[in-house]
């Protein structure tokens, strides 16, 4: 039987893959993908825990909510990357260090 633990383990794996992508990738698109993975891991957790809320389906509702938000966030993120590319002619985050003091 697939227990809650299994869901959580899968979710943790996805989260870690996403985290790795965010921290280590040299391409902003890949970082965005990593963020998406992390959000999806969270959504998976929502659905998994949703079994404890059988009356309101709070988990499922929040999952849908988060998916919509993630889609919006990706759209904004891609727009940002596009602008960054136009400005710096690169999307490698190592070459963008204007935040430095």
């Amino acid at each position: 039987m697939i227990t809650l633990t299994h869901f959580l383990v899968v979710s943790a794996c996805i989260f870690c893959i996403g985290l790795y992508a965010v921290l280590a990738k040299r391409n902003a698109i890949m970082i965005l993908v990593g963020i998406e993975l992390m959000i999806n891991a969270a959504i998976l957790n929502f659905v998994a825990f949703g079994k404890y809320d059988k009356l309101n389906y709070g988990g499922q509702v929040f999952a849908l909510f988060a998916i919509v938000l993630a889609a919006a966030a990706v759209a904004v993120g891609l727009a940002l990357i596009l602008n960054v590319y136009r400005h710096f002619k690169t999307i490698n985050p190592e070459h963008i260090h204007e935040l430095k003091d």
Binding site: P93, I96, L99
Partner: peptide, 17 residues
């Protein structure tokens, strides 16, 4: 502690993590 502030977004995240 100023070395942390090197402008690398990923470094910031790593530091936060």
């Amino acid at each position: 502690v100023r070395h942390v502030q090197n402008g690398q977004l990923q470094n910031y995240l790593g530091f936060a993590l």
